[in-house]
Computed example of a mutant assay.
Amino acid sequence: MLPKAATPSVKPRPAAGFRPIGFSLLYAVLILVAALQLLPLVWLFFFSLKNNQEVFNLPPLSLPVQFRWENYQKVWEAGNINVYFFNSVWITLAATALTIMLGGLATFAITRMKWRLSSFVLGLFMVAIMIPVHSTLIQLFSMFNKAGLTDHPLSLILSYVAFNLPITIMIMLGFYYALPKEVEEAAIMDGCSIHRLFFQIVLPMTSSVIATTAIINMIYNWNEFIFVNTFISSDSLKTLTVGVQNFVGQYTTDWGSIGATLVISILPILVMFLFLSNQIMEGITAGSVKG
């Protein structure tokens, strides 16, 4: 007589009624976390619409007695923020574009081209990540002073590119290693040159990681203070981070104007992040999976 086959044990499934409750609790926690993240922005917006008396006498999240929209007009016109804003925009965009282009070219050369010193050059870029910004200020100022680049926007752009290039290459490395080589081999078989291969094939395929590195570079360049405060002395060349100091006096400080300046300064980065959020998440995760 043949033995009976053992029947596999079936684990009881959780009751279907618990799933909506679990999702509801998860959504409630996420909404609470999102609200906590938004509280500083709400506080800053209310802060920008108050005068000094309301800032110190009213609770932080309370509405102003009178919405002082003139704070924004004051900082934009009388406070010279329009000039600082324009300087921040074009310097940030120029440095970010140059960093991404150089980072893409360097990463392509390290991951796709065979040459002796590729590993050594990659090691130099990785070591550069550990160099503190403050330890280079004196040397950079001396170098830019000899080259006639102090009080010149090019000193900021070159500094931003130099310090952002290592982290940009590090982010791009995983994505470039995951790119299928068959596409490039087919393009080369069709007679594609190395320059067309990079600009017309590889670069469009890396749009998601480009968006990721772009937002990281823009946040750093937009919020940078040390280089601007060290290399730039002309008021017409300053950026928003240094321009805020105009509203800090020796005896009085216009806190409402400072709040309005800070709101203006965070809006471009916030809008850019909202538009590129999907590409940023794709770029962060794509390089971690090969094939």
Rank of each mutant, 00 (worst) to 15 (best):
L117E: 13
L117T: 12
S118P: 06
S118E: 04
S118T: 13
V121L: 05
V121F: 03
V121T: 07
L122I: 07
L124R: 03
M126I: 05
V127Y: 01
A128H: 00
A128D: 01
M130A: 07
P132N: 10
V133I: 14
H134G: 08
H134V: 12
S135T: 15
T136L: 09
L140F: 13
F144H: 06
N145F: 06
K146M: 07
T150Q: 01
L156M: 02
L156K: 07
Y160A: 04
V161L: 07
F163P: 04
P166W: 07
I167W: 09
I167Y: 12
I167V: 13
T168L: 07
I169K: 04
M170N: 05
L173W: 09
A178K: 13
A178E: 15
K181I: 05
I188P: 13
D190E: 12
D190M: 10
G191I: 13
R196N: 15
L197N: 05
Q200V: 12
S207A: 15
V209Q: 09
A211I: 08
T212V: 10
T213F: 06
Y220R: 14
N221V: 03
W222N: 10
N223L: 05
F227S: 01
N229A: 04
T230H: 07
T230P: 12
F231Y: 15
S233I: 00
S233R: 08
L237W: 11
L240D: 01
V242G: 00
V242F: 12
Q245T: 10
Q245P: 05
V248W: 01
Q250S: 06
T252W: 10
S257H: 14
G259Q: 08
G259V: 03
